[in-house]
Structures are given as structure tokens and as C-alpha cells.
């Protein structure tokens, strides 16, 4: 999985450079999220701008990351959900669980 990582003002930002997050590739993101929180990351923003298709496995990996963040007393916020991804969050009520922003800048602003 192609993931670009940046650090800004103490926040880690992951840019997922894939067009799908599904049962074929989501395990790699799960491992990376666990590694980040295990190694001391507290606050994480995941940019989903390029993801145009997500399935229940992809949603499950984001839930896993959310739980990793809670255990680490940190946060996991999401940005830039495309229409199919947004629909899947609404269908599974996960839009009520995650803090979702329209851009990485807006998510970073929420920490200031």
C-alpha cells in the first residue's frame, strides 16, 4: 500500500495514495496504524482524498485504528471523504463515531 506520512505541529498525517481500501489491501493499513500508536503516536489524521471505494474490511481497519488511538489516549481524525466512502460511513453510522473534516488543514486546525 502506498502511504505518505507527514508530521505537522506534533500531528502525524497519513495520505493514503490508493483508490481503494478493501479486503485486498486494508490489512497493510491496519499494521501501519498499530505500529504508529505502539511507537508513541498520539494524534493521527488520515487523508482519504484518493480513496473512491471502501468496503466493510476498509471500514473495519479504520475502526481498529480508532480503538488503537483510544487505548493510547490519542485521536484519529479523517479528512476528505469521497461520495462512496461518505455513503458507507453513513450506512454503517460510523460518521457519528469519527471526527471527519473536509481537508487536512481543517483537521489540523481542530488541534490548535
Amino acid at each position: 500500500m502506498d502511504i505518505r506520512t507527514e508530521h505537522s505541529e506534533g500531528i502525524t498525517v497519513l495520505y493514503i495514495k490508493e483508490d481503494r481500501l478493501d479486503a485486498n489491501n486494508s490489512e497493510e493499513l491496519k499494521i501501519e496504524l498499530r505500529r504508529l500508536f505502539d511507537s508513541g503516536t498520539k494524534d493521527l489524521v488520515i487523508d482519504l482524498k484518493e480513496i473512491h471505494f471502501i468496503d466493510s474490511s476498509g471500514l473495519g481497519v479504520l475502526v481498529s485504528g480508532y480503538k488503537n488511538a483510544s487505548t493510547a489516549h490519542g485521536t484519529l481524525k479523517l479528512t476528505d471523504l469521497q461520495s462512496q466512502v461518505k455513503s458507507m460511513f453513513e450506512l454503517t453510522r460510523l460518521h457519528r463515531v469519527f471526527e471527519i473534516f473536509t481537508s487536512v488543514d481543517d483537521a489540523l486546525q481542530s488541534y490548535r
Partner: peptide
């Protein structure tokens, strides 16, 4: 049916719910 509460969240178990919804 999946638990929708933020405190009872499970990683798995949404696939069949999605199929039944659509």
C-alpha cells in the same frame, strides 16, 4: 446487527449488514 455505539465498536461484522441494507 453491528453495535453502533462508539463504546461498543467492533472491527468486524458490517459486511452482511451492508448487504441487507442495500
Amino acid at each position: 446487527t453491528p453495535n453502533f455505539s462508539p463504546h461498543g465498536l467492533e472491527e468486524k461484522g458490517r459486511g452482511i449488514f451492508i448487504l441487507r441494507s442495500l
